[in-house]
Each structure stands twice: as C-alpha cells, then as structure tokens.
C-alpha cells in the first residue's frame, strides 16, 4: 500500500499525517493521531459510533477514506467543551459509553441546527446512532434538555 501525506484541520488545528492510500479516517484518527474518542461499532456505516463532523456535517468516519479530508475540517468528540455535556450525564444519555461519542456528535449537530426540528423529530434525527443500552429515552430526553436550555438562554 502506498503512503500518502494528507493535511487537514483537526479540532481547529492544522495536522499533516502519512496514511495508507485506502486508510479509513476512523483508523487515522484512532491509531495514527491517538484520538481514541471516536469508536468503531460496525465498520460499515450502520451504527454511528464513529460519527465525526466533516466541514460541520456529521459523517461515519468508518466510511470516509482519509485522503478525502485533505484540506477540509474534521471535528471529533475531543473538540467539545466538557461542561457543556453535563446535561447528558444527568439525563442518563450514556451507559456503557461505546455509542456515546457518536451520539454526542450527532446531538451537537442538532444543537447547532435547531431548524432541523422543524422537519424531523429528535427520534428520526438520532436514528443513525445505534445504542444497545439506553433504549434511547435517556439520549432523546437529554438532547431535549440541551435544546431547551439553549432555547431559554
């Protein structure tokens, strides 16, 4: 496999990394850059555990070849401000935690685009993130609480 050099913006800072030509963004983040917050749940775009933001949009990083992010902006769960996540801790949004970083990244996208709720329910918007532990109420209610806080702020 040929190594190629890729430069992009990661969590606000420029990075440059040598990767294999077919390498997945998920593996580059986890194994080359040490950002293990992003998880693998299925490796085929079904579970959403590997969700990151690519130019502000949530994507499954297991389906993105790293070369495609050249010159673009990637944000991972490590970019989030921990105190802002407190409502999720209170609301039972995480149990085992394996789905959680992906859930949080999708939730943040919804938080930043409240207009989405004009056309979709929270449950529809979260349907790309599988969780086997919570039964989803803890997740959906926590996002609702975060949106409520922002709405009233």
């Amino acid at each position: 496999m040929t190594a190629i050099s890729i430069a992009f913006t990661l969590n606000g800072s420029p990075v440059s990394v040598d990767v294999d030509s077919a390498e997945r963004l998920l593996d580059t983040l986890r194994y080359r850059l040490g950002l293990t917050g992003t998880k693998e749940g299925c490796g085929e775009g079904e579970c959403g555990a590997c969700t990151v933001h690519l130019d502000g949009l949530p994507v499954d990083s297991c389906l993105v070849p790293t070369y495609q992010v050249r010159g673009r902006r990637v944000d991972t769960v490590e970019s989030l401000d921990p105190p802002a996540l407190e409502p999720f801790a209170r609301g039972g949004a995480t149990q085992c935690g394996a789905c959680t970083p992906g859930v949080v990244m999708t939730a943040w996208w919804i938080r930043d685009h409240p207009e989405l709720l004009g056309t979709h329910t929270l449950r529809e918007l979260m349907a790309g993130n599988l969780c086997r532990c919570t039964g989803y109420d803890g997740i959906v209610d926590s996002i609702g609480a975060v949106l409520g806080e922002r709405g009233s702020a």
């Binding site: 921990p82 801790a89 995480t94 935690g97």
Partner: peptide
C-alpha cells in the same frame, strides 16, 4: 448521584481495550 464515569464517556476520554 450522577453516573460516576459519565463525563469521561461523554467526552471520549474513557479508554476501552482498543483505546
């Protein structure tokens, strides 16, 4: 009491075996 390791999981800091 809130989940003890909750914030570590939410921020991706919790390290599982492959991490």
């Amino acid at each position: 009491m809130h989940r003890r390791e909750g914030l570590a999981k939410l921020t991706g800091r919790e390290r599982y075996v492959d991490d």
